[in-house]
Amino acid sequence: MTTTSPAFGGRRRRGAATALTATGVLLAGAFWAAAPASAAPAEPCAGGEMSVDGLAQWNRDRACDLVGRTIRAGRTSAVVPPRGTSVTAHVLFVDGEEELTVTTAADGSVTATTEPAAAADAAAAAPTACNDHASNLMGIKWPVGSTYRWFYHPANQAKSKLTAAEALNATKNATKNVAIGFNDCGLSAKPKVFQAYAGTTSAAPNVTNGGGCSASDGKNVAGWGDMGGSGPLGVTCNWSSSGTIVASDMKVNFRYDYWNGKGSCPAGRYDYQSVATHERGHTFGLGHVDGTAHPTATMTPAIGPCNKSKRTLDAGEHQALITMYGRR
């Protein structure tokens, strides 16, 4: 299978890497050692967004508490979470993907890891989905045997070119398919993690229209937003503590047109269930794989209009879920 006009981008760039992290590549200049253990002042930092470039100076001075302040890296941002927690923004653009993880240590020091957008590459010869055993674990997961209980925020859905029923059912199917490791390879084992749809909510996902993560309200919400005609296609935000995911929100950009997967696909539309399945992979702890070497994978950062093959996981992604959660 080949992909054209990729919506998720392609192969990750590795040239600037200095070390690996659980959620991406640690780029030179993008991570700073925590300041010596000490209690950060209670007074919050004043001002708007802070670039990741400003973290080095802040960690040296520690003149104010950074929790609640927005950190920006490229086109991606995240609100600094409470002490002892992390937030990871997976932001998918039409020309690639970016990731930003911001962690606040117990002593109040703040670190950030980033991964820049990777330009789309033409798909090369690669294994078929059932012979592809590649995967990328983010290093965070839900507690084994737990249930991811989530809500749907329907506002703005009508602008996606999908009916209300199509959008909700596709979101349900995408979430369920990842939670059970659904695949076309005859692999019947199901990971020991569950999901439950809890109904609609007036609360919007804690995802900014600029393609970043705002402060979590502790409620797991999937929904829609206006992230601009050239903005992200979709964003997933995971909040975690000590390797355990505690909340996960998803927002899809209604400024792109979507298809329900039935009949003839109108030119230029993206299969919404495939997009949602990719995002839900992040929700359950799957990271991106190389889009050039693994174009059939659901978690490749590449998909073309009218491509609905990403609705099911490949062999490697299925095994990754079993590795994380064990078997039911």
Rank of each mutant, 00 (worst) to 15 (best):
T18C: 11
T18I: 14
A19P: 00
L20Q: 04
G24E: 03
W32A: 06
A35D: 13
P36I: 06
P36H: 09
S38K: 14
A42M: 00
G47K: 04
L55E: 03
A56I: 03
Q57F: 10
D61Q: 10
D65C: 05
R72Y: 06
R72V: 15
T76S: 08
V79G: 05
T88Y: 05
V91R: 11
V91Q: 08
L92A: 05
D95H: 05
E97H: 11
D107N: 15
T113S: 10
E115K: 04
E115G: 09
P116C: 03
D121H: 06
A123Y: 10
A124L: 10
A125W: 07
N131Q: 11
H133P: 00
A134C: 06
L137F: 11
I140S: 06
P143W: 02
G145H: 04
G145C: 02
H153G: 02
K161G: 02
L162D: 07
T171M: 15
N173L: 12
A174C: 01
K176F: 13
F182A: 13
N183D: 12
D184V: 10
G186F: 12
S188I: 08
G199W: 07
G199N: 07
T201M: 03
N209G: 12
G210C: 02
A215D: 13
S216F: 13
M227Y: 01
G228C: 05
C237Q: 11
N238H: 00
I245L: 09
V246M: 13
V246C: 01
A247C: 09
A247N: 14
D249R: 10
Y256F: 13
K262S: 13
G263Y: 11
A267N: 08
G268D: 09
G268N: 02
R269D: 07
H282C: 07
F284W: 11
G287D: 03
D290S: 04
D290K: 07
T292H: 04
P295F: 13
M299P: 08
N307R: 06
K308V: 00
K308C: 13
S309Y: 09
K310H: 14
K310A: 11
G316L: 05
E317Y: 09
Q319H: 12
G326W: 06
R327Q: 15
